[in-house]
Design a protein around this nucleic acid. Structure first.
Length: 286
DNA sequence: CCGAACCTGTGT
DNA sequence: ACACAGGTTCGG
C-alpha cells in the first residue's frame, strides 16, 4: 500500500485515536520477528526498544516521506515504516488478523495492531536522536508535501543529483532527494510531466524540471485527497480502501489507450520496477 | 547500476 | 511452476 499519500492517510486516521493516550505495553505476536532489545535469537529484526514503550504518552503523530513518527513523552519517538504490506489497525478484519505481528495496548484498554503480511515493516522505539539515526529517517531528503517545497528547492536538489547522471525515475525514487515518492506515483509524475521515466537526468531542460516540480505536488496531493491508492485488498487504518486507483492516469494501464492521445500504454522494467508510460506523449531525453 | 535478498500472497 | 507486488538494503 504505502507511498506518501497512503502513509499520510494512515497518519490522519491514527492521530485522533492515540493522541493523548498512554502506552501500557507492547506484545510481539510473531515468532519469526525479533525485537533486538530482547534476548531471543529469532529470524527477522523488527526494530528496537519495544520495552521502552510502557508509560509513554502520545503527544503527536507526524510523517516524513514514508515514515510515521509517533512523538512520545520524554523526547522519545516510535518510528514506523510500513514498507510493502505493513498496516496499523484498530479493528482488524478476519483476513488480516492472521498477519498481526504486534499488539500495542493503551491504558484505557484501546488496542492498536501492527499487521504485516510480508514482514518487511520496521518499528523503532527510543530517544528521538537515536531512533532517527537507526531508522534512517535523518537521511531523508525534503518531504514535498509536509515541508515548504519551492521550485528553487527542487532545482537545487536536482542540480546536485544531475552531476551524477542516471535515469529520471531512479531519481524520483531516491528517498534522499525528495522523500515519499514510490513506484506508482513516480510513473504518474512522469506521465503528468510528459517525460519518459528513462530520460537521462543531465538531459532534462529547465521547462522539464518546472513540469516535474508541478507534477510532484499535484500527483501526491491528489493521492492524499482521495485517501491514497488501494490495489488488491489493502486497506487503511479504519479498514476502508483509498479511492485514488480510480484516478490513476498511467500506472497499471498496460495495453490500454493513453488518456491523452489514445496510444497503447506500454510497460517496461526500470531499476527493477514495473514502469508504465505512453511512448507517444512522454518525451525521452537522452 | 543491476540483481538478489528480505517475506507472503495472488494470479497466470 | 513461475512471475509479480505499493520498499529498502546489500553485494558484486
Amino acid at each position: 500500500m504505502p507511498e506518501l499519500p497512503e502513509v499520510e492517510t494512515v497518519v490522519r486516521e491514527v492521530a485522533p485515536r492515540i493522541c493523548g493516550r498512554r502506552f501500557v505495553g507492547a506484545a510481539l505476536l510473531d515468532g519469526c520477528l525479533e525485537d533486538v532489545h530482547s534476548a531471543e535469537p529469532l529470524k527477522s529484526v523488527l526494530g528496537v526498544g519495544l520495552g521502552l514503550l510502557p508509560g509513554r504518552l502520545v503527544k503527536r503523530v507526524s510523517r516524513k516521506g514514508k515514515f510515521i513518527i509517533i512523538h512520545l513523552s520524554g523526547n522519545f519517538e516510535m518510528i514506523v515504516h510500513l514498507r510493502m504490506t505493513g498496516m496499523l489497525l484498530f479493528e482488524p478484519s478476519e483476513r488480516l488478523k492472521r498477519f498481526i505481528r504486534l499488539e500495542f495496548r493503551f491504558e484505557d484498554g484501546l488496542k492498536m495492531f501492527f499487521s504485516d503480511i510480508r514482514r518487511f515493516g520496521r518499528i523503532w522505539v527510543g530517544p528521538r536522536e537515536e531512533v532517527r539515526r537507526l531508522s534512517g529517517l535523518n537521511r531523508l531528503g525534503t518531504d514535498p508535501v509536509a515541508e515548504l517545497f519551492s521550485l528553487d528547492d527542487f532545482l537545487t536538489i536536482m542540480r546536485g543529483r544531475v552531476s551524477r547522471r542516471g535515469r529520471l525515475k531512479t531519481a524520483l525514487l531516491d528517498q534522499s532527494l525528495v522523500a515519499g515518492i514510490g513506484n506508482i506515483y513516480a510513473d504518474e509524475i512522469c506521465f503528468r510531466a510528459r517525460l519518459h521515466p528513462a530520460s537521462r537526468l543531465e538531459k532534462l531542460r529547465p521547462a522539464d524540471l518546472l513540469a516535474l516540480h508541478e507534477a510532484i505536488g499535484f500527483c501526491l496531493r491528489e493521492g492524499i485527497a482521495h485517501n491514497g491508492t488501494t490495489i488488491s485488498d489493502f486497506v487503511g487504518t479504519r479498514g476502508d480502501a483509498g479511492k485514488h486507483q480510480q484516478y490513476l492516469q498511467i500506472y497499471g494501464r498496460t495495453g490500454d489507450g493513453c488518456y491523452a492521445c489514445g496510444e497503447v500504454v506500454l510497460k517496461t522494467r526500470l531499476g527493477g520496477r514495473g514502469t508504465h508510460f505512453c511512448p507517444s506523449c512522454q518525451a525521452l531525453r537522452k
